[in-house]
Design a protein around this nucleic acid. Structure first.
Length: 768
DNA sequence: TCAGCTCACACTTTTGAATAGC
DNA sequence: AGCTATTCAAAAGTGTGAGCTG
């Protein structure tokens, strides 16, 4: 839990609470629902919405030179599921993910604060159906739903906080309710998705900036379902999830127990009838049970009887404990895929809980145990996710990756090292797409992992913590050495020519450069790395933005909420930017695009790209399905590689192998082929000009949809019925950003705050 | 007819308040 | 009075299966 003591900057007034945020277990009182919160008259807000930035004299924190790394703690469990074809139940009310994401972070600056986000993006453009024991792509994906982001409840927290414990996102819930008001992550059923975790440097929840690191673990891909399709998955979940313990063979809710209950009910009914009919059958023995027992009591009795010798066969045929007793004698069936082993390892969840595990739900603990057990005997990690074209659900087994996925956000080049592919994982088992897909054909020979270049550098306010060595991103891009993130572009695509590919208008770049040059002291002048940089894209010219953070802290004059029409171009004015730069649109933010615009002045650059799978297009299923490469975590470095997008090569088909990295030690996984995960293909680079003037580049969902039609007009909103509620926050009097935190809101449920953390809806849809 | 979805159900774990003991 | 441990009940998380829907 957060505390004001720990995070003084969180000591915002009520408006802060009402700002579409909800925090886990916070007092529910006085928390207006979103979007009402956004309608609050800004003028009524307390003067100080955000903590003042550190003073000029305030010591800056040093940016840690250590690479930010994220490890998937329960990677083995994930791999077990992935080897079968992970399915995630989604319900109207929201369903937790199991397995959950259990992560370990390292390389953070202990004194800086970070926000951890979880978002889930489509893995491809297909809809799936479980046929013939496997998943088959049967058509095109449905229109993309509002992109919501789950904010880890601890956010923002210091790097020390994140690194001292296992980070779990088990509170995040998935729903298929497109009208969901709970803030859950909305997904389509029978679609394949890829979770992503973002680490964003931030002074507090509303002040994001600095470096961003995005991590993708291919083994966490899953297909959403409303009911489990694959029995193997069901068995795995039952045996791994403590909440489903009752469904295990020896559980009270196992099929046999249920059948027994059913029989007993039938018997009770018939017995009751008999009693009513004055049937003299053994009333002294079972009548009390028959009359008073509920299924629960009957089960308890049955359980108690289980250890007893068989009861004499009642003359009436009513044997309450019979089934239960028999059930207990039935040995557990051996589970496929090492389930038996798993079951044995987690047979006593309570034990594991008692072992002193912290910060984990029971399921997570079970996972941990499973993980440990996996390290001893790890099953082959083979993904059964189908290759759409292959028409086959079965995949060859792939060699097991290292027990854990570790990824450094800065190690893009490492994983992309084509010259030194990981021998341990010669082939991936999410193959089909890769080999068959023309898009990936070029990359099929490369070991470069597909990277979602969602991380980018971003102006960071000076650290308030004097103990901090240096500000993470205090310097402009002009001084690469100063910022560890600035080096990412080169790191990612060292071999690519520098340049040029960045399509930002030269004028814009000049302006930015000029601005930077003129504002040397401005921390915000740091280079901005836009996401979705293509590995192939070599040299993204770093795009620098004018300072987004105004160091001067003034009362917030207003907190206007604008409601731009859906489909309207997601552009936002940048006060401190030249007039011709005022409308800076992010391609992926368009309504019909996967990710609506993020109207964050100082944050938009960092976030919008981060949550924008630019490569995801609502293409017909006929499109080749991108391959899925399990095994490694794709670190998304925070460098900006916008150029990739603009360059023709940005297209997945034209992707080039990233340059080999000199250091491969940071990643425990072998390099993945680029584009293994479709949406992570650096296809859609950020190109303001393209966005504004090249509608054809926008995602095409429905030909009939206005947004899909080429036109000079801005793309139409994908979700017409849902207004957007950009929240305009002002961190200083000089700049006002239209913040697209449309779904940053707090949920009220039965008068209680949302217990599951914070959600940020990146879409244009309103939560309410 | 059927695939997919919703809901109630029973079981389980988790959580927090109440209580007891020191 | 304050702290810790225990107990208890409510809330919430599970998969299942019947029923509904298009």
């Amino acid at each position: 839990m957060l505390s004001l003591e720990m995070y003084p900057s969180l000591s915002l007034g009520p408006q802060r609470i009402g700002d579409c945020f909800f925090r886990e277990r916070q007092p529910p009182a006085h928390m207006p629902l979103f979007p009402q919160a956004c309608d609050v008259n800004p003028k009524a807000l307390p003067p100080r919405l955000l903590a003042p930035p550190p003073g000029p004299n305030e010591p800056a924190t040093n940016t840690p030179k250590e690479e930010v790394k994220m490890e998937l703690e329960n990677a083995n469990l994930w791999k077990q599921f992935s080897s079968v074809g992970t399915e995630m139940i989604i319900t109207k009310k929201g369903r937790r993910m199991f397995p959950g994401l259990r992560l370990k972070l390292s390389g953070l600056n202990p004194s800086l604060r970070y926000i951890l986000l979880l978002d889930i993006i489509p893995a491809d453009n297909s809809r799936y159906r479980f046929q013939g024991g496997g998943w088959q792509a049967v058509g095109g994906a449905e229109a993309r739903l509002p992109d919501r982001v789950f904010i880890h409840p601890d956010s923002p927290a210091t790097g020390a906080h994140w690194q001292d414990r296992t980070i779990s996102f088990h509170y995040a819930k998935l729903t298929n309710n497109t009208l969901d008001t709970q803030g859950h992550i909305i997904l389509h059923s029978l679609h394949r998705y890829q979770p992503r975790v973002h680490v964003i440097e931030a002074r507090d929840v509303l002040r994001w900036g600095g470096g961003q690191h995005s991590f993708v673990f291919p083994e966490t891909q899953f297909i959403t379902v409303t009911a489990y399709q694959n029995n193997k998955i069901t068995d795995l979940k039952i045996n791994a999830n403590p909440f489903a313990k009752g469904f295990r063979e020896d559980g009270m809710n196992s099929k046999k127990q249920r059948d027994a209950r059913q029989k007993r009910k039938i018997s009770i009914s018939s017995e009751t009838l008999d009693i009513v009919n004055c049937d003299p059958c053994d009333s002294t023995e079972h009548l009390p049970q028959s009359i008073t027992s509920t299924s629960s009591t009957a089960d308890l009795q049955a359980l108690a009887l289980a250890s007893l010798p068989p009861l004499p066969d009642p003359s009436c045929g009513f044997r309450p404990g019979e089934a239960a007793y028999q059930d207990t004698l039935v040995p557990q069936q051996t589970l496929d895929l090492g389930q038996a082993f798993m079951a044995s390892q987690i047979s006593d969840i309570g034990l594991s809980m008692a072992s002193g595990m912290q910060d984990t739900a029971g399921s997570e603990m079970a996972n941990s145990m499973i993980e440990r057990s996996d390290t001893l005997g790890e099953p082959a990690y083979t993904s059964t996710f189908p290759a759409p074209e292959a028409n086959s659900s079965s995949f060859p087994s792939a060699p097991l990756p290292p027990p854990s996925s570790t990824f450094s956000s800065l190690s893009v080049s490492d994983i992309s090292d084509t010259s030194n592919p990981h021998p341990s994982i010669p082939s991936m088992d999410y193959p089909s797409i890769l080999s068959s897909s023309p898009i990936l054909s070029s990359s099929s020979t490369t070991t470069t992992p597909s990277l979602q270049q969602t991380t980018f550098t971003f102006p960071t306010p000076p650290p308030s913590n004097s103990s901090s060595p240096q500000p993470l991103l205090c310097s402009s891009s002009s001084s690469p050495a100063a910022n560890t993130y600035h080096t990412i572009p080169e790191t990612i695509s060292p071999h690519t020519p520098t340049d040029d590919s960045f399509s930002a208008p030269s004028g814009l770049q000049d302006q930015i450069s000029a601005h930077l040059n003129n504002s040397p002291s401005d921390h915000s002048s740091a280079a901005f790395i836009y996401p979705n940089s293509l590995p192939a894209n070599p040299d993204p010219a770093p795009v620098t933005f004018p300072p987004f953070f105004n160091q001067n802290h003034h009362p917030l004059p207003t907190l206007p909420c604008s409601f731009p029409p859906h489909g309207a171009p997601t552009s936002f004015p940048l006060p401190s930017v030249p007039s011709h730069m005022q409308n800076l649109a992010f391609p992926n933010m368009h309504q019909n695009s996967a990710h609506p615009a993020l109207h964050l002045q100082n944050q938009a650059p960092s976030l919008a790209p981060a949550f924008t799978p630019s490569t995801f297009t609502h293409q017909p299923s006929s499109l080749p399905h991108p391959p899925f490469q399990p095994s490694s975590c794709f670190a998304v470095s925070s460098s900006f590689q916008q150029s990739a997008a603009s360059a023709p090569s940005a297209h997945p088909q034209n992707l080039h192998n990233p340059p080999p990295s000199s250091s491969t030690t940071s990643s425990s996984y072998p390099p993945l082929e680029r584009g293994a995960i479709p949406q992570f293909n650096p296809v859609a680079p950020y190109r303001p000009d393209m966005v504004l003037h090249h509608p054809s580049l926008l995602p095409q969902l429905d030909p009939s949809h206005p947004s899909s039609m080429p036109s000079s007009n801005p793309p139409q909103a994908l979700y017409h019925s849902f207004p957007s509620y950009p929240l305009r926050l002002r961190q200083d009097p000089h700049s006002s950003l239209s913040i697209p935190f449309r779904h940053l809101y707090r949920q009220h449920q039965h008068g209680h705050p949302h217990p599951q953390g914070s959600y940020l809806d990146m879409s244009t849809r309103a939560v309410f």
